[in-house]
């Protein structure tokens, strides 16, 4: 853009283009050189540790490479989309895909609902202790999942704190992490606890950009709090909601850390996610299957994000 813009006044000045061009061209080359110098360290590191592994895994997903072929890459054969078709015939993968869907379908609405409710509550005119609430609700975000896993495993013990609290109200709690029906809800609860602080502060920022007099006017016109929220706050919050939905989709579809540190994908594969499946396949040396599974995940992330853009754009 700038090169185009600066070229125009040069020719319109009437000065001979023959005289103007050589220094310009030299300047241009110099500028390109400077630009590359500024980008250089980033490009070198990004190409080596970012782009190359992606190309490498993409090529793994269409070859019969295994752990044994790492030293002899030329014995590897091209297998096309065989891994991808094999994936969809593998019940373990299908189970992992279903588990990931379960986690996303329950986890995202739950996280967004809690985050929005808290943001609205914190924005509804309380100023006493608002800072304290905000900091406390955000605190789980900064914790290390390894450390938190220790605490939550202890909380989820059959005779742990959560079941002790449930026992007070007369509920006999399950053995959370060892019951295939309850392992996923347990991980969802932990994930929601660990993550809701981020959408909460994004929603808060969105809410603070809605002019207060707009809501004031609606209230003066006789709208109830709920009506004002439904017909003013929510529509104005749509761009924020889109951002939150896309961020959570990218994060939650990669569901990995919780099963890795809490359940190792069990019991009975009930918390094996697509990421965890890919990680396991890498561990078994099935590099092709593992890479293919991870690209199914990439496709899912891209699709879901695109879908959300479509939905929110259409409504806007």
């Amino acid at each position: 853009m700038t090169s185009l813009a600066s070229a125009q006044p040069a020719s319109s000045l009437g000065a001979g283009p023959e005289r103007m061009r050589p220094p310009r061209a030299g300047g241009h080359a110099r500028r390109t050189l400077i630009a590359w110098a500024f980008c250089g360290p980033f490009i070198a590191l990004f190409a080596t540790f970012g782009v190359w592994p992606v190309i490498s895994s993409l090529s793994m997903s269409v070859t019969d490479i295994t752990a044994r072929d790492i030293r002899t890459p030329f014995s590897v054969n091209f297998v096309g989309l065989a891994h991808y078709t094999a994936l969809f015939g593998d019940p373990t993968f299908l189970r992992a895909a279903a588990n990931t869907l379960y986690f996303v379908a329950v986890g995202i609405p739950l996280t967004m609902g809690i985050a929005l409710a808290l943001a609205v509550a914190l924005n509804s005119g309380i100023h006493r202790a608002k800072g304290l609430f905000r900091v406390a609700y955000f605190a789980p975000v900064v914790t290390s999942v390894v450390a938190i896993a220790v605490v939550w495993r202890y909380l989820y013990e059959p005779d742990g704190m959560i079941n002790s609290i449930l026992a007070v109200v007369g509920i006999h709690g399950p053995d959370w992490l060892n019951d295939p029906n309850w392992s996923m809800p347990a991980l969802i609860l932990m994930a929601v606890w660990r993550h809701f602080g981020i959408p909460m502060v994004i929603f808060l920022a969105g809410l603070q950009s809605i002019p207060a007099d707009l809501l004031e006017a609606a209230r003066v016109d006789g709208a109830t709090r709920w009506q004002a929220f439904r017909s003013i706050t929510l529509p104005l919050l749509r761009p924020t909601t889109l951002v939150v939905a896309v961020l959570l989709s990218i994060g939650y579809l990669q569901f990995f850390e919780e099963p890795f540190v809490m359940t190792s994908g069990g019991p009975l594969g009930s918390t094996t996610s697509i990421s965890y499946y890919a990680y396991e396949q890498f561990g078994f040396g099935n590099y092709g299957m593992a890479s293919a599974a991870s690209y199914v995940l990439v496709a899912a992330i891209a699709l879901l994000s695109l879908l959300q853009f479509r939905i929110f754009r259409a409504k806007a």
Binding site: W52, I70, S275
Partner: peptide, 23 residues
Amino acid sequence: LFGLVLTMLIIPGVTTFVPLFVL
């Protein structure tokens, strides 16, 4: 290049994990 940067934003860690380790 910037398009590449944007694309990398949505690539899951598990995709690059093993190639990165080998590298």
